[in-house]
Simulated scan of single mutants.
Amino acid sequence: MLALLTGLTHLGLVALLGGVLARRLWTPGWPRLWVPALGAGLLLLGWGGQLALTLSALGFTAPADVLVYLTGTGPGRSMLLALLGAALLLAAETGRWPWLALPLAAAVVVWGAAGVGHGAGHGVGVRALHAAHAAAMCVWLGGVLTLLRRGSPELARRFSPVAVACVLTLALTGLAMAGQHLRLPSAWTGTPYGQTLLLKLGAVAVTLGLALGVRRALARGQGLRAPLRREALGLLAVLALTALLVTQPPPAGHATHAAARLELP
């Protein structure tokens, strides 16, 4: 259940951030505003479910306990911050605020989201790695879905360097985070976290191969829909494994939102 709820929040981030980015940068006016709004709703649903599971496990089910958790713990405040950023991002897009408002609001969203999962129990630097990792994944998958639905060869060529930047960002931040969470070589194969991460890396490698297939099709003037569909499915598989990974405690230890210190009257 926790992996499913986490997956909902990841999909929410993609729909929210990727949807707004596509509307402003790639395909003006598309997707419809309900897509990023749905993304914000998935964030609320996913984190609301995680909050309910956490408080139920701790034995705190009174309405006042929810407020204490949201305002008295780091993960709770991070949820509120991300939802505030989501509201600002939707307002900026709906009201056609200046372009600068969008990356600022998006930064608030990913910074808040990074404080809910494995980035919660570490310092600012590690949390920034998680935020950059999430942002790169949202831009990459959001761009691929945009190309799949409304793409053209010209748009694919414009998106190509953006996708490369996302891949490099994911690789660098992923390696840095792995160094924080897996400090012993044996942890890669001897722990559920390490094993899940290896599965995710395998899925990433396959997806990179699929992305190269898109570039080859583009260079040869072939149809892009089929290779883009395969790349999108690969990225969704990576996203699903990421959701599963977040439910596994890293061997190096950290304070997850489920284990956050909670003092209630």
Rank of each mutant, 00 (worst) to 15 (best):
Val162Gly: 03
Ala131Thr: 04
Ala82Tyr: 13
Ala135Val: 03
Leu58His: 09
Ala82Ile: 08
Asp65Tyr: 02
Arg127Tyr: 03
Leu67Cys: 09
Ser78Gln: 00
Leu89Met: 07
Leu129Arg: 00
Pro75Trp: 15
Tyr69Ile: 02
Leu102Lys: 13
Ala132Val: 05
Ala128Asp: 10
Val116Phe: 08
Val124Leu: 15
Val167Thr: 00
Gly142Phe: 00
Glu93Ser: 08
Ala57Arg: 15
Thr73Val: 08
Gly115Lys: 03
Ala91Val: 08
Gly49Cys: 10
Leu100Met: 05
Gly115Met: 07
Gly123Leu: 14
Met137Gly: 15
Val167Pro: 00
His118Ala: 13
Leu141Ala: 12
Gly123Glu: 05
Leu141Gly: 07
Pro161Thr: 01
Val162Leu: 12
Ala86Arg: 05
Ala105Glu: 02
Leu53Ile: 06
Leu83Lys: 00
Ala156Gly: 00
Gly121Gln: 14
Gly59Met: 14
His118Val: 06
Val110Thr: 15
Gly121Ala: 09
Ala131Trp: 03
Leu141Gln: 10
Phe60Lys: 05
Arg158Ser: 09
Arg158Asn: 07
Ala114Cys: 11
Ala57Gln: 14
Leu90Lys: 01
Val126Pro: 10
Ser152Met: 09
Ala114Phe: 12
Ala52Arg: 15
Thr54Trp: 14
Thr54Arg: 15
Leu83Val: 04
Pro103Trp: 09
Pro63Ser: 05
Leu83Ala: 07
